[in-house]
């Protein structure tokens, strides 16, 4: 009696071992399959990032906090970060104001119109940022189509300075980042069941009331996702402000390149990058407390 119980116990133990072995093998295989990707991420992202951080603490040959001291005390740096945040804020606000109606229209209109709207939003996405920035440059310059048209209609008597300044930067950046606002919004709105809107109407709510109390609250997670994406991407924008800003609108990323191109100061450039990276991480952290990151990144 006792021996059979023991045998049973052993058999159970063996089968548990077997399943454990099987699971370990499975994990091993998974790891091997993933290893090329892991290697690439490690070599091309983690290592350079670590190097960047280390570098930011070196002045000449000695370890020092000099770069960070300069960033936090000198006016130029302060102004640049302030400008970067201000532009990002305005761009995000404009992208939201333009993107929300677009996503809403794509959601409520018949399918074929939805496709047209999304195509118009996404198509420019497939051309290079450089091309789009130059296109805006041509459109907005003193003798460009926009100024000619405004004067032609008689709205303005002299050409407006639409480019080589903050305004030009904002216009082009909004255009380039608009898909990042529209797509998460559209994805969220698509998932709002139409039944809820019908129920709202049947319960006596006018279309405006249904929007205010049902549709809009349910689209908020998409708003947060879109706003975060656009804001964060805008913080690190480089080509567009470089081309559209005319050298006067200096954003944080341009500070990085100037430190290298003009002063060959890799340490200072690294320190600016690290501060910018920290800003982005803090934003993501705060937002992730509100909604899951998978939603922002669109994997859910």
């Amino acid at each position: 009696m006792k021996s059979t119980a023991l045998a049973e116990h052993n058999a159970l133990g063996n089968s548990r071992d077997a399943s454990l072995r099987y699971r370990r093998r499975e994990h091993m295989l998974m790891f091997i399959l993933m290893s090329p990707a892991v290697l690439i991420v490690f070599l091309l992202l983690i290592v350079p990032l670590a190097w960047l951080i280390i570098q930011s603490f070196y002045v000449g040959d000695g370890v020092s906090l000099e770069h960070y001291r300069r960033i936090f005390t000198e006016r130029v740096y302060w102004n640049t970060f302030l400008l970067t945040f201000r532009i990002s804020f305005v761009v995000t606000l404009l992208a939201f104001l333009m993107g929300y109606p677009l996503a809403y229209a794509a959601t409520v209109l018949p399918k074929r119109w939805a496709i047209v709207i999304l195509a118009i939003v996404i198509l420019p996405f497939w051309t290079s940022v450089l091309v789009r920035a130059y296109a805006w440059l041509i459109l907005l310059q003193r003798s460009g189509v926009v100024n000619e048209a405004l004067m032609g209609v008689g709205l303005t008597s002299a050409p407006l300075s639409l480019v080589h300044n903050e305004l030009g930067t904002i216009i082009a950046t909004v255009h380039i980042l608009l898909p990042f606002m529209v797509l998460p919004l559209y994805a969220t709105m698509q998932k709002i069941p139409r039944d809820l809107l019908m129920a709202g109407a049947s319960l006596g709510a006018s279309p405006l009331h249904v929007f205010r109390w049902v549709f809009f609250p349910l689209s908020l997670s998409g708003v947060l996702a879109g706003v975060t994406l656009v804001f964060v991407l805008c913080l690190g924008f480089y080509i567009t402000p470089e081309l559209m800003g005319g050298g006067r609108t200096v954003m944080a990323s341009m500070l990085v390149s100037r430190n290298i191109q003009l002063y060959s100061d890799w340490g200072a450039a690294s320190a600016v990058s690290v501060v910018l990276l920290m800003c982005v991480l803090v934003i993501f952290y705060v937002v992730s407390r509100l909604i899951s990151l998978e939603r922002i990144l669109g994997t859910k």
Binding site: M198, A199, G200, A201, S202, L203, G204, A205, S206, P207, H209, V210
Partner: peptide, 8 residues
């Protein structure tokens, strides 16, 4: 619908 006063 919202003016009909019908429960659904």
């Amino acid at each position: 619908p919202h003016k009909r006063n019908i429960g659904i």
